[in-house]
Simulated scan of single mutants.
Amino acid sequence: MSEIDRTQYLIDQEPYYRPVGQEVALYEAAYGVRMPIMLKGPTGCGKTRFVEYMAWRLGRPLITVACNEDMSASDLVGRFLLDINGTKWQDGPLTVAARLGAICYLDEVVEARQDTTVVIHPLTDHRRTLPLEKKGELVHAHPDFQLVISYNPRYQSLMKDLKQSTKQRFGAIDFDYPSAEIETEIVAHEGGVEHAIAEKLVQIAHRSRNLKGHGLDEGMSTRLLVYAAQLISRGVEPRAAAQMALVRPLTDDPDMRDTLDAAVNTYL
């Protein structure tokens, strides 16, 4: 890999991340021994931003893969492609990261097929290798390579969960929505609004999270709060911004929308 290949995966500017516990120190220690890491927490709570921040902090390239149910093993490791000169091999993102010594982040890995996730096993134990069976090559991971995965355990089921043979190859860090004080700080900073507005948005979110399991699969995420704040900072009326960014994406149920709209009207 040439230097130009490496630099395109580096994060130039410090991403904003507000630590809420010992997660930064824990990750740094894990990276020191190249321990594979699993980030567990609800959607939109900051897992991806945390990985970006740590990659910047450690000065490591970061390659992110958004996993989905159609993703095959070839999408991760690579495949032969046909062009005008015949066939040529193209590395997938996991292989590129292993060669380069990057952090490879598989976002929402539980969405991928279980037969796909098996390909990461040799990279997550003492072997630290990636067999490219179609190419007949065994890639030995660069000393700086680390694998990070994330998933939302609240969505796990018998049909969609990680196998124990996969889980027990990782150290795990739990994530959740931060305390009201910290979340208000995050929303104010990222959304560009005053503290008082951010505080009201967080109060609405807490009301929605109390409805989880009582008509809602998931409450409002910190990400959605930032979206609402950004709309408000652009001059959108606060209630309209909250309905657009917080209520409408969350549910189509008329009664639940009325309940959430009432919370919006109460706080805004």
Rank of each mutant, 00 (worst) to 15 (best):
D176R: 15
M35P: 01
F80R: 14
R128L: 04
P254Q: 09
R49I: 07
L216I: 14
A228H: 00
Q156A: 14
L62H: 01
N68L: 06
G92D: 12
E3Y: 06
L26D: 11
L225E: 00
H195K: 11
V202Q: 01
P178I: 07
G101Q: 08
P238L: 07
F145M: 13
I37C: 04
S221P: 11
K212G: 09
S72M: 15
R239F: 00
D83R: 13
G41I: 14
A262L: 11
S74R: 15
F145H: 09
E52L: 11
P143F: 05
G213H: 07
D144P: 10
M1Q: 08
R234G: 00
H206Q: 14
L268T: 05
H126V: 14
M1V: 02
E23Q: 10
P15Q: 03
L58R: 11
T266C: 06
G41L: 14
K200H: 06
R209M: 07
T48Q: 02
H121R: 13
A205R: 07
S150A: 12
E23H: 08
K135A: 13
G192F: 00
V139F: 02
D107A: 08
G101K: 12
G46D: 02
G59H: 06
E133T: 11
L94F: 03
P153G: 07
M54S: 02
D217S: 13
L138V: 09
A98Y: 02
H195T: 11
V24M: 13
K167D: 01
K167Q: 15
R127P: 05
V24S: 08
R18I: 01
K135H: 04
H206W: 13
H126G: 04
T43F: 09
N210G: 13
A196P: 03
L130I: 06
T222E: 04
A97L: 14
P15K: 06
V96S: 06
A196E: 09
A241F: 00
V226D: 01
K134C: 08
H189V: 03
R248S: 12
F170E: 07
S179E: 10
P15S: 04
D252R: 15
H206E: 12
R248E: 11
A240D: 00
G78T: 05
C104H: 10
L162S: 01
P122I: 14
N85P: 01
S165H: 05
A112Y: 05
Y105S: 06
A141N: 04
T64Q: 15
L130G: 04
E183P: 10
L81C: 11
E108M: 13
N85K: 15
